[in-house]
């Protein structure tokens, strides 16, 4: 039987194409265009080839920002993941207090990024901030505006405060799906608390934990608003992460060519790391199943 061919059906795909083109393809191509041209505004472009890419790859400034970025992501993952698991394990399983905990945990997640930044910016100020003032009263020499270590601590504590809930809530959901019989069997088998965690809770949480780590990695690697509001990337360049540096370059200095090359590499790095990460974790999962 012949199938009816009606090429007009292609028109049905058109709306999607248009939306995707305007929301993703065209903006991305514009960036690509900027990255291989030199421009002085006025829509005049001069072909630059891979010059901007070469400049960026060898730039000390970008290396510095990338280094700080990797350090930042590593630190917050190293704190938030274990802390989130610990909180999830210790949250009440049901009843009134479980609901109270869930609401409290969800609160930081609902606060807009720049508000979080503002809260901590004020909270940490030595003159009027609750934290900064009392630390000074206690004799701690704390000032995030001129001490790089203090600035880092502030930014990291802020991120932990903002996002640990996400890890905790995901893990909590994973824990809730474990049938009671597993814990009962563990009691009968005389398993230690550590064994229960290692052989029952952790395997059941592995799936959601993977998602939590992936989300926290991507988000922290792209972090912009909160450190920008608190420290503005300072003191000096101490808390200038990739996004902040990128914005400085593109908007502050109007170096559109290098900024575009930077953007593309930044995007590819995130894509690559996330992909490697995901593949490794899912493969581990499969091998265990064999």
């Amino acid at each position: 039987m012949d199938k009816t061919q009606n090429n007009k059906a292609w028109f049905l795909v058109l709306p999607v194409l248009v939306v995707v083109a305007f929301s993703a393809i065209i903006p991305l191509m514009t960036v690509v265009n900027y990255s291989v041209n030199d421009t002085f505004g006025d829509n005049q472009f001069f072909w630059a080839g891979l010059e901007w890419f070469e400049e960026m790859v060898t730039s000390d400034r970008l290396h510095g920002a990338l280094g700080r970025q990797i350090l930042f992501s590593s630190i917050i993952l190293a704190i938030e993941v274990p802390l989130g698991i610990y909180i999830a394990l210790n949250m009440p399983k049901k009843g009134f207090w479980a609901s109270v905990c869930l609401v409290l945990m969800a609160l930081p997640l609902l606060i807009p990024f720049n508000v979080v930044g503002t809260i901590w910016q004020i909270f940490g100020r030595v003159d009027i901030g609750l934290l900064g003032h009392y630390l000074a009263e206690l004799g701690v020499d704390y000032n995030y505006t001129n001490d790089p270590i203090d600035a880092w601590v502030t930014v990291i504590v802020m991120d932990v405060w903002h996002w640990t809930s996400l890890v905790a809530l995901l893990c909590y959901a994973g824990l809730q799906s474990i049938p009671e019989a597993y814990y009962q069997a563990a009691k009968v088998d005389q398993a230690s608390r550590w064994s229960v965690f290692r052989y029952i809770e952790l395997p059941k949480m592995a799936g959601v934990l993977l998602i939590a780590v992936l989300l926290r990695f991507m988000d922290s690697f792209m972090i912009y608003t909160e450190p920008f509001v608190v420290t503005g990337g300072g003191p000096g360049n101490a808390t200038t992460f990739l996004s902040i540096d990128l914005v400085k370059m593109a908007v502050g200095q109007f170096d559109l060519g290098p900024a575009a090359a930077f953007s593309i590499m930044y995007f590819l790095v995130i894509l690559l790391v996330s992909w490697v990460f995901y593949t490794v974790m899912t493969n581990l999962d499969k091998e265990e199943g064999r």
Partner: peptide, 12 residues
């Protein structure tokens, strides 16, 4: 020793 209605094994 107790055996439950649904299988309880340590998956990993």
């Amino acid at each position: 020793a107790q055996v439950f209605q649904f299988p309880v094994v340590y998956d990993t």
